[in-house]
């Protein structure tokens, strides 16, 4: 198989890579395969830490890379590091799932949030239901800052938002999360 030249020294936040030679659809599948294999684990890991559910994370990661393949021709003009760009797509996909879950809960009442069955972990089983009750945009900033360890500046780049907006959302999200955790404690 012809492997397109691609920067294989993968830093956490690489500079914008030069895309390899493209075919009529924008980019060769071989080139995208390199991107996919370099970043799949990182993206799946992010989604796992955000959702707490490995199967769900795997599904969303697959959706992320399918969407990335389709959007890759447009990536060349965004000027965003590839990892940030993939995190943005993954975040949007995770937000869509979170939004559906919230609608389901609104329609069917206060049903339990998506079951976290990966491992018995009381503490995290306490955190994830509360996290899932946040608005998707709040889940995003909490996940990217606290679960991924990104700086405010990096999160702003991923979400394409001003840093001030990220800070205010994070402050608000933490307050709501504390409230949700406290309510959960009362209901135990």
């Amino acid at each position: 198989m012809t492997q397109a030249a691609w920067n294989t020294t993968q830093p956490a936040e690489p500079a914008k890579e030069q895309l390899p030679a493209t075919n009529c659809s924008g980019t060769t599948p071989e080139a995208f395969d390199v991107i996919y294999r370099q970043h799949f684990t990182a993206i799946a890991g992010y989604l796992y830490r955000r959702t707490g559910n490995q199967d769900l994370a795997e599904d969303i990661a697959a959706d992320t890379f399918l969407a990335a393949w389709k959007a890759l021709p447009r990536y060349q003009s965004t000027g965003v590091p590839i990892r940030s760009w993939l995190l943005r797509i993954a975040t949007n996909k995770a937000n869509a799932v979170a939004r559906r879950d919230r609608i389901r809960r609104r329609v069917f009442g206060r049903i339990p949030v998506r079951q976290q069955t990966d491992k018995a972990d009381d503490v995290l089983d306490w955190l994830y239901p509360a996290l899932a009750r946040l608005r998707p945009q709040h889940q995003s900033v909490v996940s990217l800052v606290h679960l991924e360890g990104l700086s405010i500046e990096q999160v702003a780049r991923v979400l394409n938002l001003p840093e001030g907006t990220v800070k205010s959302r994070l402050h608000r999200a933490r307050a709501i999360l504390k409230h949700e955790l406290t309510c959960q404690g009362e209901n135990l």
């Binding site: 294999r37 799949f40 684990t41 799946a44 890991g45 796992y48 830490r49 707490g52 490995q54 994370a57 795997e58 503490v123 995290l124 306490w126 955190l127 994830y128 909490v142 606290h146 679960l147 991924e148 360890g149 955790l181």
Partner: peptide, 14 residues
């Protein structure tokens, strides 16, 4: 709590 979640490592397929 968040730090504990941050420690979770992806153990699924690559």
């Amino acid at each position: 709590l968040l730090a504990q979640a941050h420690q979770r490592q992806w153990a699924g397929p690559d």
